[in-house]
Simulated assay, not measured.
Amino acid sequence: MDHLACFKPGDLSSTSAPDLTSYRWRLLAQGDSWFSTSAAKLNAHANLLQEMVFKDPACAVNCAGSGEALSHMVDLESAADFVSLLSDDGAPVWDGVLLSVGGNDLIAAAQTPAHAADGSDVPLHLRLIRHQTEWGAPSAGVARYFSEPGWQTYSDYLRTNVRHLLTLRDQGPSAGKPVFMHCYAVPMPRPAGADDSGLGASGPWLYPALKAYALPSADWAAVSRLMVFHLAQLLKSMAADKEQFPGLHVFDSTTVPLAPATPGTSGSSGDWHNEIHLNHSGCFKIARAWSEHIEAVLSGVKTVEPVRKRP
């Protein structure tokens, strides 16, 4: 098993440019902080790509960059390298595209307050959590805190933008190639930001949002689980819709057993480096399982391609 060789877009035009043809699998990657190449994040072993392994030599050109801030999946204006390498006529032919998207957008939606700065109410369709006066019946469990109208808005947003990314793929030389997305693991809302690890003055993320909404702390873990499982179900339903999302493959990370962080802790705990980022052991567990899923799909693609050729 070989580790995935990771390159940056600039490496392709350098004097010592890598020979991509020496790898059996050539992948293009774009994503949020789980793919970040920030030195601080790499030192914390918080990059999934660095932990991926394949039976055959594989490489990835990672366009996620070194930014430390949370990035949103539709910020393609600042992802010119990714768009060019995916859709330009002269771009390489990639065997697949790796995407780590949707998680930061989910966090941002959960952070949306119930009231705007001017004191006016933020409508339910623009936020994921209900104010205390809007809670449903206790018999609904933690779902009584959840804004279904807000979830519909988020779902429409994610579906629209994943379709856009697939359209970009089909405009270039890699048309029809598989696109791989992962679901996310369930974080424990806790006061564990990135400040103590050199990752920038950010976080915690869910912890202050749930406190601001006055949700009972005993329900925080279940609320986090509810949101992450909603996202996993959404992503898997998209992958199952081959007409709207052709070539999309989703790996359900929620099925990978992880050691949860201890509630109330502020540093690395269990398989988590901070509140929403995995540490070395967490990345190792998810990346190894996702690698198997990806290589199985890629091998299947390779074996069926000759059948499509005409005599």
Score class of each variant (00 low, 15 high):
Leu12Lys: 02
Ala218Ile: 02
Ala209Val: 14
Ala114Tyr: 08
Gly200Phe: 01
Asp219Asn: 14
Leu278Ile: 02
Val61Gln: 01
Trp290Ala: 01
Ala296Lys: 12
Met238Ala: 10
Glu134Trp: 00
Ser84Ile: 15
Ala194Met: 12
Ala44Gly: 12
Met188His: 05
Ala259Val: 10
Gly103Phe: 03
Pro92Lys: 05
Ala114Gln: 09
Ile276Tyr: 01
Ala261Pro: 05
Leu98Thr: 03
Leu166Asp: 06
Pro173Asn: 14
Trp94Thr: 05
Met73Val: 05
Lys302Pro: 01
Leu166Lys: 04
Val83Glu: 00
Ala58Ser: 15
Thr15Asp: 15
Pro57Trp: 03
Glu275Trp: 01
Tyr23Met: 08
Leu48Cys: 10
His131Met: 05
Leu42Thr: 10
Trp220Ile: 01
Leu166Ser: 05
Leu206Lys: 03
Ser202Phe: 14
Val250Ser: 01
Pro178Ser: 08
Arg288His: 10
Asp118His: 08
Val228Ser: 07
Ala212Thr: 07
Ala239Asp: 07
Phe180Tyr: 04
Leu199Thr: 00
Asp196Asn: 14
Tyr157Pro: 02
Met238Arg: 09
Asp121Ile: 15
Thr21Asp: 08
Asp118Ala: 08
Thr255Asn: 10
Pro113Ser: 09
Gly102Arg: 03
Phe245Tyr: 12
Glu243Asn: 11
Leu42Phe: 07
Ser87Lys: 11
Ile129Ala: 08
Met227Ser: 01
Gly270His: 07
Gly90Cys: 07
Ser36Thr: 14
Gly141His: 11
Met73Lys: 00
Ser202Leu: 12
Glu51Met: 12
Trp25Ile: 11
Arg163Gly: 02
Trp25Tyr: 15
Asp2Cys: 12
Val228Trp: 04
Asp241Gln: 09
Phe245Ser: 02
Ala218Glu: 14
Gly31Gln: 02
Ser202Arg: 10
Leu4Glu: 00
Ala259Tyr: 06
Ser22Ile: 13
Ser281Arg: 15
Ala212Pro: 02
Ala209Leu: 11
Pro216Phe: 04
Asp170Ala: 04
Ala58Leu: 06
Leu48Ala: 15
Ser147Tyr: 04
Cys59Met: 10
Arg310Ser: 14
Ser174Ala: 12
Ser66Asp: 13
Pro173Ser: 14
Arg308Gln: 14
Gly203Lys: 02
Thr153Phe: 05
Pro92Ser: 09
Ala287Lys: 01
Ser202Pro: 01
Gly119Cys: 08
Ser100Asp: 06
Asp170Gln: 08
Arg310Ile: 14
Arg127Ile: 07
Leu48Asp: 03
Val162Asp: 00
Pro208Asn: 08
Asp156His: 13
Ser100Gln: 07
Pro246His: 12
Gly198Tyr: 06
Gly136Trp: 10
His3Asn: 12
Ala58Met: 06
Arg163Asn: 02
His45Cys: 07
Leu231Pro: 00
Ala192Ile: 13
Ala117Cys: 05
Thr21Pro: 00
Leu248Thr: 10
Leu126His: 13
Asn62Arg: 08
Asp241Tyr: 06
Ala29His: 03
Met1Lys: 11
His45Gly: 11
Tyr213Arg: 05
Asp95Arg: 07
Pro311Ala: 15
Lys8Phe: 02
Asp56Thr: 14
Leu168Asp: 02
Ser139Val: 15
Pro173Tyr: 08
Glu305Lys: 12
Cys63His: 00
Leu106His: 01
Asp32Met: 04
Leu235Asp: 03
Ser155Met: 09
Leu70Cys: 10
Val74Gly: 10
His164Lys: 14
Met181Cys: 10
Ala140Asn: 12
Lys242Trp: 03
Arg288Glu: 07
Asp32His: 03
Leu226Glu: 02
